[in-house]
Computed example of a mutant assay.
Amino acid sequence: MNAPFAADARTPAELLRAALGEDPARPLVTFYDDATGERVELSVRTFDNWVAKTSNLLQDELNAGPEDRAALLLPAHWQTAVWLVACWSVGVTAAPGGDPAEAGLVVSGPDGLEAAQACSGERVALALRPLGGRFPQRPDGFLDYAAEVPGQGDRFAPYSPVDPESPALETLVDGLPLRLSGEQTVQLAREGAARIGLERGGRVLSTLPYDDWAGLEAGLLAPLAAGASVVLCRNSDALTDDQWRSRIESERVTLRIG
């Protein structure tokens, strides 16, 4: 039996570091938005670079750290995946779909800006435009992520080591709240990868949102834990069977979920 990928990793950020050390050039996250025709592919190295820049933004510009909580009002998107791993790199608890009024930081896409104003702390807005473009006009009361992140450093080191036993993720399972440490998140991700049959080097296509564990598992965490990769598809309800077959073949998908 083959040894599990990154067996010593105890946080999601450590899973990413293991992938970077093994094969930085392989694809990690491929994203489709079928409403705009956008396709973005990030290698492990490129994804890690975005995570490092976002982590530096979190730590140095937003003064976020362990014991802070970030509400992420974002869809399943490559930039959302970056934000999740950046939170875990800094030690911030990520709460996808969380209540902004109860968070010290909120990160929102265009559809969540009104709700995000309930956060009394730092607010970051993502335009989610093709090629990571900026808002035509920055929303009042928000930092524009696309304007802030390019100037951040390409390397990241937390001010203090991230404790694998500290809170890392707040999500839902079958509609019930679940709070996980980094270590528990990695363990559940490994179990999920085994349950869905995702093997090392595999490629899972997911159309699930990130608003519960099932979507986070299929669309990010199980691929990280298995040494695999993910194809995220958004706004794809109108695709025909032939179009799906073509995408699955061209992307060399080994498993489809959603």
Rank of each mutant, 00 (worst) to 15 (best):
L143A: 13
D144N: 09
D144C: 09
Y145C: 05
Y145I: 03
A146Y: 04
A146S: 15
A147S: 14
E148N: 02
E148C: 12
E148Y: 09
V149Q: 09
V149M: 09
P150D: 07
P150A: 10
P150M: 11
P150Q: 06
G151V: 09
G151R: 13
G153V: 10
G153I: 01
G153W: 14
D154Q: 08
D154L: 15
R155D: 09
R155K: 05
F156Y: 15
F156K: 02
F156S: 06
A157D: 08
A157K: 12
P158Q: 11
Y159L: 14
Y159D: 14
S160E: 14
S160A: 15
S160C: 00
P161K: 10
P161D: 10
P161H: 10
D163C: 05
D163L: 14
P164A: 03
P164E: 04
P164V: 08
E165Y: 03
E165H: 09
E165K: 07
E165C: 07
S166D: 15
S166W: 13
S166V: 06
S166F: 04
P167D: 12
P167Q: 12
P167T: 12
A168D: 04
A168E: 04
A168C: 15
L169K: 11
E170A: 11
E170N: 01
E170R: 15
E170M: 12
T171K: 09
T171N: 01
V173P: 01
V173W: 15
D174I: 01
G175K: 13
G175E: 08
L176S: 14
P177I: 05
P177V: 05
L178D: 02
R179Y: 09
R179C: 02
R179L: 06
L180C: 11
G182D: 07
G182R: 13
G182V: 11
E183D: 11
Q184I: 07
Q184L: 10
Q184N: 12
T185L: 06
T185R: 05
T185K: 06
V186R: 03
V186P: 03
Q187N: 14
Q187L: 14
Q187E: 15
Q187I: 03
Q187C: 04
L188C: 03
A189I: 06
A189F: 02
R190S: 01
R190Q: 05
R190D: 00
E191M: 06
E191A: 13
E191L: 08
E191I: 06
A193P: 00
A193W: 00
A194H: 08
R195I: 02
R195L: 07
R195D: 07
I196Q: 05
I196F: 09
I196N: 00
I196T: 05
G197C: 03
L198K: 06
E199L: 07
E199H: 14
G201Y: 07
G201D: 11
G201L: 12
G201F: 13
G202P: 05
G202T: 09
R203D: 07
V204N: 01
V204S: 02
V204Q: 01
L205G: 02
L205K: 01
S206P: 00
S206T: 15
T207F: 00
T207C: 01
T207V: 14
L208A: 15
P209V: 08
P209W: 10
Y210H: 03
Y210R: 03
D211E: 07
D211M: 07
D212F: 06
D212Y: 03
D212M: 10
D212P: 00
D212A: 10
W213Y: 06
W213M: 03
W213N: 08
W213E: 00
A214D: 14
G215I: 07
